[in-house]
Structures are given as structure tokens and as C-alpha cells.
Amino acid sequence: MGLLKIDDLKVHFPIRGGFFRTIVDYVKAVDGVSFELNEGETYGLVGESGSGKSTTGKAVVKLNDATSGRILFEGQDLSKLSFGQMKPFRKDIQMIFQDPYSSLNPKKRVVDIIAEPLRNYERLSVGEEKKMIQKYLDKVGLSPDSMYKYPHEFSGGQRQRIGIARALTLKPKLIIADEPVSALDVSVQAQVLNFLQDLQEEFKLTYLFIGHDLGVIRHICDRMGVMYRGRLVEEGISEEIYENPQHIYTKRLIASIPDLNHEMREKKTNLRKRVAKEYEQNHSKYFDDLGRAYDLKPISNTHRVALR
């Protein structure tokens, strides 16, 4: 049984217009997305800006309201819960954000940043709290004396670790990582990715990993979903999707990844041209008249594709 099951999730934002600012249309940021996360796995959501991948992640922690559909966490539908009713679940689901520079309050010390979720849920004595924070700082590889420093005294990678430490204190089951390494340099990115894997092993975490870098997604995710304009176009085991992409959009994405092997240049360029041509010619095979991707259909037990 999956830890998190998202069933036909829709998040629509109203567009207001006209004299009385009435709702004239909707932006369908997420438009009928379904997938499932098993315990202990890393599930990647990949797509370009505006594809709805972040909105999906935020809907799980109710930073966005779901318009319809179900978000089942351990069998409980979160989408119907009020803000107050969500409280016990917030402990189990934590979020890590992209920008380590703006997601930490610059006026708070590290100790207060990390302790904040803890203070919301548990009553700990000052001594206990300190011990706990030291433990987590140690886990994320920061020295105990960094407790009384402010975020600006740290580098990007270290700040991202502070964000991760904060997410860990409540011993969550699910972590939603929204582009956690996109703002980091390659070498720092490597640190954070390794470290997310270590933590996963140690705390039996499940990750919903949202990203746009296909190399990173491939590296870290067991299974993944490719999003395009609010819809999933392909979903399944990462290996299969990379080795055998079926949807034209997935093919385009994969073809766009720059190759470290400089001898592949010519081949890559030709591949991109081929895919672009196919995209134009066989549009109706992949998208309906409204330009919307079709519903996902299984092509194997572990691979689903949006084909007509």
C-alpha cells in the first residue's frame, strides 16, 4: 500500500476580469494528475517551469488548495481537511524549498529556525531542545556552534542543510523537496544529493523530489512522472522512461539534456531535429484538439504513457 496516493488532483486558479472582477476563466495549473508513492522510495516529478510540478507538491502540504481530486496520505484524504485538521499530518509531511537564501528567515538564529517546527508540536525543556538540535545539526554535518549563527553566515549548501535539518526534527515520513539543489553549484549539489540519500536510509524517508534537471532526477529517483502543462504525460520507473521514452514530450526533454561527451554533438543535434519534427508531425497522436495530453495508459506494469 502506498504512502501517498494522488488521485485525479486538480488545482485551478481563477482568472478574474470584467467590471465586477468575476471569474472569467481558470488557469489549470494541475489538471487531473494521479500517481502513487511507496514507502521508502524517491519519486521524481519533472517538467519545465509552468508545468505544475511545484503546484502539485504544494497542494500536498496545502500551500495550495486542491480544486478537486484526492490526496491520500496513509489512507486519509488530506484534500478535504481544514487547515486545523491538517496539523497532525503536517508533522509527517515536511517540505524543503529551492532557494536556500530566501527560505530561511534572516533575522532568526539557526537554533530558532530549526526549533520552530519542534516548538509547534512538542513541549521540550530548553536543555532537551538544545540536545535535539545539536543532534540534527550533527546529522546534516554542521558544527554545534553554528546554532547561534544567522543564515547569512553560511554558504548556499550549508543553508540548504539547515533547511533540511528543520524538516527532519519532527521525524517526518514524507519529504517534499521542491527543486532542492537547483540553486547550488555542482559540487555542492553533489553533497546535498548524497546527503539526502543517507538521510533516506537512516530515517526511512520517502521523497517527492521536484526538479527540472533530468540528470539529477535520474540519479536520485526510483520512479518518476513527467509533467507538461498540468498533466502527466509519462510515469513509471526512471530507468524505463530514460531508456525507452514513449511520449513525444519526454523524448524532447531527454533529447535536450546536454551531453558530457563532446563527440556526441552531431548525433545530439540530429536527434533533437528528429524529435522536433516528430513533435510537429504527430501532434494529434499525443495531444487532443485542445492541446491537452491524453490520460495515462499502462504500456507495462511499471510504465504509463499518455497516448490516444
Binding site: 554558504s155 553549484d185 555542482v186 559540487s187 549539489q189 553533489a190 553533497q191 544529493l193 548524497n194 540519500q197 540528470g215 539529477v216 535520474r218 540519479h219 536520485i220 526510483d222 530507468e239 530514460y242 558530457l260
Partner: peptide
Amino acid sequence: RSLLKSIPSQATNKKRLHVIDGMV
């Protein structure tokens, strides 16, 4: 060499990435 080695790619699937000690 370290930079090249720290890039995630298909070869590194789920394995540990190379990390450069320290900071710039």
C-alpha cells in the same frame, strides 16, 4: 577532474556522487 566526477548522470544512478572537500 573533481568537477566532472561530481555531475550526476546515468552512470551514477543511485550511487554516491563525488564530493569536493571544503569550500571555494
